[in-house]
Write a protein that binds this DNA or RNA. Structure first.
Lengths: 145, 145
DNA sequence: CTAATTGCAGACAAAGTTGTCTTAATTAAA
DNA sequence: TTTAATTAAGACAACTTTGTCTGCAATTAG
């Protein structure tokens, strides 16, 4: 599995938010936790991170919860993954070296450049707006079976 | 960083073996540990795994060490990565679900299929033979700077 | 045979990830 | 104003990954 649990939980939670009917405002974390089978307190921490990064907003108290901070058209999968796994998760060196570029390439640099650019392109194009409607229309899963 | 430390250490060690002159037989793990700056005992365990999987052979005692178990043309980067990270590391579901295919796709399935096939293709084509000569001819790095 | 050199095995430790629990702070509604 | 519902914060624990250490087993050189 390529992504950490934190990242998977974050992705699924954000996709859940994106697929909620627009008339819903703040959605309780408890609801997401139950629907997606993610440990509540763990999810709370992860979502707090996403809130600090500006992806979601939260409100305490009754009728509180979380909601997306931007329109779904302005949120893509890549930036959510990178906010959890680190900004250089896809752009970094495949051998983990901090300085690796065409001037000082690692042994796998050339081949990896092509792959990682493709990954970034595809995931960067994957906006929540399209994704959410696709999930709803085709009944795509956010849950383990 | 996409790969675990175990995997990076394994990759670099195998690439080191591939770039050694053919007249060298068994190469001491201590040498690899020093040259690549990888903790010795940790590396020993990782290489034991690779030996159990059939990628390398080892010999104890004086003049002992490890060597590749197959010709470099028959070893590629993909199988080494998968032997460390797990067979489904690249082929599995991006949301981590155990059952995810075209019949029961997860929310990101379609897009991810294209990317992961590309990754597997490229890394599967990356044989140690070509890689090693490229590393030697172009002086590519196996080390952090 | 002996000694030196190496990989092997397993206990242990340090650090990171994942998850649980309790309490506090905030908000809306009764 | 009280009460219920909710996020926030932080201590703690379980587990995994990463790394260290010690001694053992095998092999070769002398």
């Amino acid at each position: 599995m390529i992504f950490s649990k934190r990242c998977l939980h974050a992705l699924r939670a954000v996709l859940y938010l994106g697929t909620q009917p627009p008339e819903r405002d703040f959605i309780p974390i408890r609801e997401i936790s139950k629907k997606l089978d993610i440990p509540f307190h763990f999810l709370t921490k992860i979502l707090k991170d996403l809130a600090d990064k500006g992806f979601i907003e939260s409100s305490r108290g009754a009728a509180g919860g979380i909601r997306l901070a931007k329109p779904t058209a302005e949120l893509n999968v890549k930036e959510i993954i990178e906010s959890i796994e680190g900004e250089d998760y896809f752009s970094g060196c495949i051998l983990g070296f901090s300085k690796c570029d065409s001037d000082n390439p690692c042994a796998l640099h050339d081949r990896w450049v092509a792959i990682k650019e493709e990954i970034q392109k595809m995931l960067g194009e994957e906006h929540l707006e399209v994704l959410s409607t696709r999930i709803q229309e085709q009944g795509l899963r956010l849950l383990e079976m």
